[in-house]
Design a protein around this nucleic acid. Structure first.
Lengths: 141, 141
DNA sequence: TACTACTGTAATAATATCAGTTACAGTTAA
DNA sequence: TTAACTGTAACTGATATTATTACAGTAGTA
């Protein structure tokens, strides 16, 4: 799993938590514990997918452009991590004259594709708003 | 996802496909397209978990010790890959005085733990025997 | 017994991936 | 015009992954 997914989710939750709904890459980076450039790269992608609005220039930053309860982790997953389950490493060799060796690559791909869908289904059930609720619940405990 | 999982599945399917149910690390490695040492390491783990029997010495190798239709990918996943979904990278910082930054690590862990279970559930539905069926189906097509 | 063909495992090297940093152009508010 | 931002590219360093080498232990067989 890509850690950019984590950064994206964390960033959106942080924006949802802010009273004014805004934060700069530096503020986000310090909260997430990474560097601003990495945050900007992720946010840039989120902007292209319509999850946030960007304001460049002084006093700028990022702002949620959707309701926290309408954005699911699956949306984020699809936007920047989908298909990452299967390792780049590939088993077997299509040229092989063995039934197993020659077809395992494709069959394994199909297995991972299914796994990815399963994962997406799970992420579908969690929204940014819920993440925020879980955080406050945790903080109270 | 760990590529050892792929090697393990591929190896077991290959064993299931062999008429005599046996193969050496070198034979498996050539079929999988990797090197024998890697295969031996994975198989060693599968042996410790009761999936295969080993015979050392001349003429030795590996043999399935369970019915192909009774071994699921989830069994293999649990044995050598479970919990690999969450990236080692961790978001936030427990020392932070922000609600979000201080608790995100834990909440995210819980999310990934759930994702892992979901994945396991999916793998539960696929057996080594089914993998072999898929391969033969693919070969016919 | 000696030889050959295996497994088991550690250590190392080569390579690929990931994360952090620096640099700088473009944008906007004051 | 300056200061505070985003957007990107390029580079560096760290970490993880895969392959290789080496060798001890085991078992079948001549």
């Amino acid at each position: 799993m890509n850690s950019e997914f984590i950064i994206a989710v964390h960033s959106l939750v942080l924006l949802a938590h802010r009273p004014d709904g805004m934060a700069s890459s530096e503020e986000i980076a310090s909260n997430v514990c990474t560097n601003p450039v990495r945050v900007r790269k992720v946010m840039s992608c989120l902007r292209k997918n319509g999850f946030v609005d960007t304001r460049e220039g002084s006093g700028g930053g990022y702002r949620l452009s959707q309701e926290p309860n309408e954005v699911t982790l699956a949306d984020i997953y699809r936007a920047l991590t989908a298909g990452s389950l299967a390792p780049s490493w590939c088993s077997g060799n299509p040229e092989s004259d063995c039934l197993v060796g020659s077809n395992m690559g494709e069959v394994m791909d199909a297995v991972f594709c299914g796994a990815d869908q399963q994962l997406e289904l799970y992420f579908e059930s969690i929204t940014i708003g819920q993440m925020l609720s879980r955080l406050t619940a945790k903080a109270k405990a």
